[in-house]
Simulated assay, not measured.
Amino acid sequence: MAEDKRFTFEDYEEIRNFLQGKTKCRPKILIICGSGLGGLADRLEDSYKIVYEDIPKFPVSTVKGHVGQLVFGKLGDKEVVCMQGRFHLYEGYPAWKVAIPIRVMSLMGVKTVIVTNAAGGINRSYNVGDFMMIKDHINMMGMTGGNPLMGPNDERFGPRFPPMSKAYDRTMREQASDIAKELGLGRLIRDGVYCSLSGPSFETPAELRFLQTIGADAVGMSTCPEVVVAKHCGLRVFGMSLITNKCILDYDNDEEANHEEVLETGRQRASDMQNLIARLVERMSNSEKINNGNGVI
């Protein structure tokens, strides 16, 4: 797919205006549902669904396990919007287009982004079914020319050179860990570094050993473009990976990674992850301010 002409601020406003004309919901929280984890959107009350194909200038999701719609509604007493299906570089989208929903939602008034994904466990202490709270990431796509902020910068969204040293909100990570313990899931919680590659091929043992050497605990094919743009827009971010498979670093291992394994683990752990995220949203104060990594603003 050829590189599309980048959107102007007015293009994002057009999408925002379309969505606001369809629903009275004005969410402060965006939840991005990873592979097999879209069931959280089914818990929303007073929900209103808009399929991606009906949204002007919006990308569409082509991946099995991703429904491909926005779901607006209430989770407890909070107005939220869920993305049932996200976008990836391996679908042919440039990095900036993968992150279109983030900018649109920031214009709608979203202040917090909760991003989930399915990931392979590189850290040998991780088990299938574990939840990894993302404390940092390695944006391999961005480091090799796929940063979503490349090109002209619009100061109305954020600064030319946004810091990423504290991309993931520590307070929310601690809250999520406490909630997991309350739910009896404490044994499943990990705290680690997520690495994002473009895909769609799964990694070779040599590639995985390289990622292990540079400090990655888990690897996937999403999340980093969305988080980079969210921080550019001044949004608070909480990220969590469901470890759906153990990465194969041993040349003598006859097993192979596959997407069906990812989806099956997602189905098995979906309820636990949904309960955790729902309770995390429930505990968020309606008046909570944004932590931009340099203090609360």
Rank of each mutant, 00 (worst) to 15 (best):
E174L: 15
C247G: 03
D154V: 05
I189L: 15
N245V: 10
K135D: 05
E45I: 09
Q274P: 00
G39Y: 01
N275Q: 14
S285L: 03
A118I: 04
A2E: 13
T116P: 05
S222E: 09
D252C: 03
M143S: 09
S106R: 14
D136P: 00
A180G: 14
C224E: 03
L276D: 04
Y90I: 08
V63H: 12
P101L: 05
L30R: 01
K135L: 11
V71S: 12
E155D: 14
N253E: 14
G266Y: 01
M240E: 08
F18P: 10
G192C: 10
G65I: 05
D154M: 06
N258E: 08
L211K: 06
L70Q: 06
L276K: 07
L280H: 01
N17G: 07
T62E: 12
K166Y: 13
V193Q: 06
M221C: 08
R170S: 07
T8S: 15
L211D: 07
N291Q: 01
C224I: 00
A278N: 01
E264W: 04
D136H: 06
S165M: 11
T171A: 15
V80K: 04
V104Q: 05
R170D: 09
T8M: 11
Y168T: 07
R86F: 02
L107V: 12
G73I: 03
M140G: 03
C82P: 07
L30A: 13
T223N: 11
L276W: 10
N286E: 14
R187W: 14
I102W: 00
E182T: 15
G239R: 02
V262T: 06
Y52Q: 07
Y168S: 06
N139E: 02
P94K: 09
R43I: 04
E203R: 01
H137G: 05
D130C: 08
F210N: 04
A176F: 11
L242P: 09
Q268G: 04
C224W: 03
I248E: 02
K57I: 00
Y12W: 13
K22E: 12
G85Q: 04
L44H: 04
A167S: 15
K5E: 15
F7C: 09
F161I: 04
D54G: 02
P205H: 09
K49T: 09
N275C: 05
A230P: 02
I277K: 05
